[in-house]
């Protein structure tokens, strides 16, 4: 297969990129993946597939990405280091590349204690930064960890994540610099609700020149209800929903809350588009892929660029 990463092309052409998340099903049905991908088609540049997120067993992200690639869409393969050691991780990178998957997002993964397999052994043989470097060396140096040569290197646009809202904030830029040094071509952030804190973080990156060394995609998640806003703020580690947004969601009638969630999301994207150093947006509409089309359109991001 000779296909190239669409996400990479969009970013390198200086276009504001759009990706969206697709969570694989808790079952073996390919239709569910296909249905979600159809909702995203033509609205996004690449479909980003989560890897057993929240440590709940789902269809593998590699298989779901293969299904999406088969529909002619670009996909981003998420891989976490929680479940696989360095042998399996490297092997799956080779397999993913062979299947035509061209984007890889390296993460540590939600801890196994959060999901439905609390008795599982967490692997964490590599950490996410080490994993990025391993992937880069496989691609650029054509070697696996330890130096053995590959008969053919994988072709992957490599990404990593960043959380602008986690502590300690003064160390966040240092850690991101390490991810970029390790080889992260693009960075996808945690869901952004607190734009002030996000800008503080972005300024820290600019001071270090980091926004010029990688493509930063701002993460957004449309809120469905004030309850969701509160839950994310209080229960999800590393997510910061300001009180004023919770109040705003509470201030609209129940049947208008989803609409208000989309309004907030669009406003956030419009702000992100104006921020120097932000090169795209990643929309995580959790089990609400139907919302993505409207969000992208109202954010002035349609049509998506064509390279044919």
């Amino acid at each position: 297969m000779n296909n190239v990463s669409r996400l990479k092309k969009v970013l390198e052409n200086g276009e504001f990129a759009v990706t969206a998340e697709c969570g694989p099903p808790r079952g073996a049905d390919p239709e569910s993946v296909v249905k979600k991908a159809k909702l995203l088609k033509n609205n996004v540049d690449s479909v980003n597939v989560t890897d057993n997120q929240t440590a709940i067993v789902r269809m593998s992200s590699l298989a779901a990405c293969a299904l999406i690639q088969g529909m002619g869409l670009d996909s981003v393969l998420q891989m976490v280091v929680r479940d696989r050691n360095r042998i399996a991780l490297q092997s799956d990178i080779l397999g993913a590349s062979a299947l035509g998957i061209r984007n890889l997002l390296c993460l540590s993964g939600d801890h196994q204690s959060f999901g439905n397999q609390g008795q599982a052994k967490g692997v964490f043989d590599l950490d996410s930064i080490q994993f990025v470097r391993v992937a880069k060396n496989m691609r650029d140096e054509k070697v696996i960890l330890g130096g053995d040569p590959l008969s053919s290197p994988p072709d992957m646009f490599i990404g990593a994540t960043a959380n602008p809202f986690a502590d300690p904030i003064q160390f966040r830029a240092v850690r991101l610099a390490k991810k970029i040094e390790a080889g992260a071509d693009f960075i996808q952030t945690q869901c952004i609700y607190n734009l002030d804190r996000f800008e503080t973080w972005l300024n820290m990156l600019r001071e270090r020149g980091l926004t010029e060394k990688t493509f930063i995609l701002g993460g957004v998640t449309p809120l469905k209800s004030p309850g969701m806003a509160k839950y994310m703020n209080n229960k999800v580690a590393g997510i910061d929903v300001p009180e004023e947004l919770i109040k705003r969601m509470e201030g609209v009638p129940k049947d208008k809350q989803r609409k208000e969630g989309i309004n907030i999301c669009v406003e956030t994207i419009l702000r992100l588009k104006e921020m120097p150093g932000v090169k795209g947006v990643h929309i995580m509409a959790i089990e609400w892929e139907e919302a993505v089309g409207e969000i992208v359109e109202r954010s002035g991001l349609l049509p998506r660029p064509s390279f044919d």
Binding site: R82, S108, G109, H111, S113, G122, F124, D127, S128, I129, Q130, T161, A162, N163, A166, D167, P168, F171, R175, K178, Q190, A237, G238
Partner: peptide, 15 residues
Amino acid sequence: AKHLLNGPCGGSMDG
């Protein structure tokens, strides 16, 4: 909990 040699992860809040 994640045995990170290049931490902290994105879940560190208020220490």
